[in-house]
Amino acid sequence: MTTLAHHTTRTAGVDEILLAEMCAELFASLPRSDQRTKGAVYVRGLLRAEGRKSIRKLAAVSGGEVSEQGLHHFVSSSTWDWRPIRAALARYVTRTIPVHAWVVRPMITPKAGEHSVGVDRGFSAEAGQVLNAQYAVGVWAASDEGASPVNWRLHLPKPWLDDEDKRSRAAIPVGVAAESMAGCAVSACLETGGFWGLPVRPVVLDARSTEVGGTVRRLQAAGLPLFVRVSASQGLVLAQQALPGRVSGPVSAHQLMAEVRHLRRPVHVPGSRSGRHSAATVPVRLPGTGREGRELLLVGHWDGRGGPVGYWLTDITSASLSTLVGLSRLVAGVDDNFDRITDRTGIRDYVGRSYDGWHRHVTLASAAHAVAALSEVAFDRYAS
């Protein structure tokens, strides 16, 4: 196991020992030494090149060790499998830092043209406007110490999958089928939590614009604990005896939290400037599941500024209120890591057109993020 506090060789904010160690472990599945070299060069280039991470810049960082053409071929049209490398990255990260949850975060990559794999024009709720873009979801290993992406799923609209010419040009595998964005999120979680030998942790995701019931059922069927954000208008059914005298029909999350407002208890939120955080829970079921449906908790979180700042459904019924609110706070940590590290290490800079090329790039960019994030943790610990 890596002992982060022992890493003391640092260049431009990067722990060199950690970088070499991680690349050796991640690229062990590549059969040829030249492939392993190119993988390490690509990751190092993402960490060192300034501005947009073009292939030319990444090759230049290597000082002639790898040519621009060779690096382009390695990512866009080679045949190496990115899946074992991504799984190795996930195992490395979870072995190195404590993982409190798997946090799902969407990623939008605006595109000028129409040939990048999966690019589609449509309204983005996250951006609040119509965009021509690629849409993907990332699964992040998240803790109070930091966060790192370990898995990705690219959303492919039905027109891309129904058009044989587009499928052929992007080399989209035969088995890839159409999914909603919510379906992509759940599938990415099932892959991360079910097939890679990783620790079981709560899945934290935003389901406010999706069909909540289907998301909850798929996660529960896979045995993954869930902590799912829902809209204020989400209809829920009170569990029996939850609020004596209350009707049994569907009630909105907002109405339910208004009724239990007086039951709020203070919660500690590390790093918050406000000391007035509080939370309450009420047992509920999803509409249409009947009394046999699995009981969930609706969690409301207040920060002293009026109504609840969020409504969450969870099947983690034995955790403290502070622990549950802490799970919701991990989302902000992931967003901070994306803005501060992931985007700067070129996660959205791939300009190729192939499906596997996109997956290779985001896998290597995730490795670069992990090196940068873990270098921060290592030197913070060393300095203290």
Rank of each mutant, 00 (worst) to 15 (best):
T3S: 09
T3Y: 04
D15Y: 11
L30E: 08
L30G: 08
R36L: 13
A40G: 09
G45F: 03
V61R: 04
V61D: 06
G63Y: 02
E68F: 03
Q69W: 12
S77V: 09
T79Q: 11
W80E: 09
D81V: 06
W82M: 04
I85K: 11
A88L: 02
Y92C: 05
V93F: 07
T94I: 13
R105G: 11
M107P: 01
M107A: 07
K111R: 14
G113I: 04
H115Q: 15
G118Y: 06
A125E: 14
A125P: 15
A127E: 15
A127T: 15
Q129A: 15
Q134F: 12
Q134D: 06
A142W: 01
A142Q: 03
D144F: 04
L154H: 02
W160H: 07
D165C: 04
R167G: 03
S168K: 11
A177L: 02
A178Q: 07
M181G: 08
A182I: 07
S187Q: 09
G197T: 10
V200M: 09
R208I: 12
R217F: 07
R218E: 13
R218C: 07
Q241T: 01
L243R: 12
R246S: 10
S248Y: 02
P250V: 00
V260Q: 07
R261G: 05
R264D: 05
R265T: 03
G271F: 03
A280I: 07
V284W: 00
R285D: 08
P287W: 11
R291I: 07
R294E: 15
L298T: 11
H301E: 12
P308C: 13
T314P: 14
A319V: 13
T323P: 00
V325G: 02
S328R: 12
G333P: 10
T345W: 04
I347K: 02
D349L: 10
D356S: 06
H369A: 10
H369I: 03
A370P: 02
A383D: 10
